[in-house]
Design a protein around this nucleic acid. Structure first.
Lengths: 240, 240
DNA sequence: GCATATTTGTCCGTATGTATA
DNA sequence: CTATACATACGGACAAATATG
């Protein structure tokens, strides 16, 4: 029972924003769960780009786990839509199409819109989380760290949905944004993808603290429309 | 590779309303997937009530599958929140608490509300699905089939969320209602649980076809508040 | 509190079917 | 069309954790 998990490099910088704040709250994690988390991270980083075949033999050897354990981890990833399972062919890192992006942004609109409508009367620390995310994005932009701008952007919109105060909405939003990362990976430049929206996030946060939910909702809708269009256009240009 | 799946009895009546219209669209299903589906059905029926331990040895023998395959099926059920996995202790059918019910109804409000707001401009066949579900519930009530009234109710509200036209919202709603069934199982009478809400569903459908989305939204909110209260009250009375 | 039985966690080996070069 | 590689699924093994007397 000696698990190596060799591929788990230091990774000291991702202590914050851990998306896996799920069910390891009180209990230790099993091997399959840890394997799933490692693979999730590698996929999000782009180390395992869309279309990559996840060979049971090769991955099992690399991670030092048995094929049985690996297959259990795969089930979790399939449920998270990060990989697809083709019968008798194996599992592959998912490749998103424009239709997926359209649907994801429709759900974002529903979830973040729900959060906005719940903003009046939301706990003040949730509003503070919004402000912190916006400020973090702006600081990262000044430092030229566009990857960090991207994660701050996701953090801001996660905080937007979290205004609803529902654990299940939070989890759904997490899964959704993890899936959306697959589309981000196909984009040419992180800067071009995230920079134009820094100002919109600031606007939304300011309008919200001023109590203007309708105004914030309007800006949010334009944000989502523009971002969706940008990603879909890039996808179609890439495919042509 | 001879799979029995003995527990899969005829079940001729559940051809409609199959919740598992997920990913067996074009490919055959693997054993683990079929096992997960069987267990899902048994849990929804109440044959495996909340708190039941799902022993690997016993279940594997009963279903004629190996422990490895069974464990893969468990992963899927864990992700669907139908069972909980306690490390080194096994998996148990989930027991919902009042806080879970509160959260589920908050999400229902968000999802069904989103559907309502998208009603104007939704495809006419989606509106027809609403009407069909309401009519089905009324017919079942006249026949005294309260279990069927319950599934018609779920079908109606699933159709409500489906007005948004998003595949991911549909899937989320399915998972949510499957989870909610766990709470229904603990209620004393299916009739008392569903009968009071037949009239509300009718009202919502009529207001929607008349184009009064705001009116429909108001009725929906009262529906959800009352249903949540009823279930939570019953839970607390049960636990005391 | 301790010894024992049961059950899970994880690995390995292997037979069979399926897809692909 | 055959050969090869791989996924599917089973069964057995053993350590570790948990439940039981």
């Amino acid at each position: 029972m000696a698990q190596d998990l060799d591929l788990a490099q230091p990774s000291a910088e991702d202590t914050l924003g851990r998306l896996a704040a799920d069910r390891d709250l009180l209990g230790r994690a099993g091997t399959a769960q840890r394997v799933a988390e490692v693979l999730r991270d590698r996929i999000a980083e782009g180390a395992l780009p869309p279309g990559t075949r996840l060979s049971e033999h090769a991955l099992g050897a690399a991670l030092g786990v048995s094929r049985n354990t690996l297959r259990e981890a795969f089930r979790t990833l399939v449920d998270g839509r990060l990989v697809v399972h083709e019968m008798n062919r194996g599992v592959f890192v998912r490749t998103l199409g424009p239709d997926d992006v359209v649907d994801i942004y429709a759900v974002r609109s529903a979830l973040e819109g729900t959060g906005l409508r719940a903003a009046t009367g939301a706990a003040p620390e949730r509003i503070a989380a919004l402000e912190a995310a916006v400020a973090g994005g702006e600081a990262a932009a000044r430092a030229g760290d566009w990857a960090e701008v991207g994660t701050a952007d996701l953090r801001f919109h996660r905080a937007l949905a979290a205004l609803a105060g529902s654990a299940r909405i939070d989890e759904f939003m997490n899964r959704l944004l993890a899936e959306l990362r697959l589309a981000f990976l196909a984009m040419p430049s992180a800067r071009g993808l995230h920079e134009p929206f820094l100002r919109r996030n600031r606007e939304i946060a300011d309008l919200l603290t001023a109590g203007d939910t309708d105004g914030a909702a309007a800006v949010l809708e334009r944000y989502l429309d523009d971002a969706r269009r940008m990603i879909c256009d890039s996808m179609r240009a890439d495919g042509a």
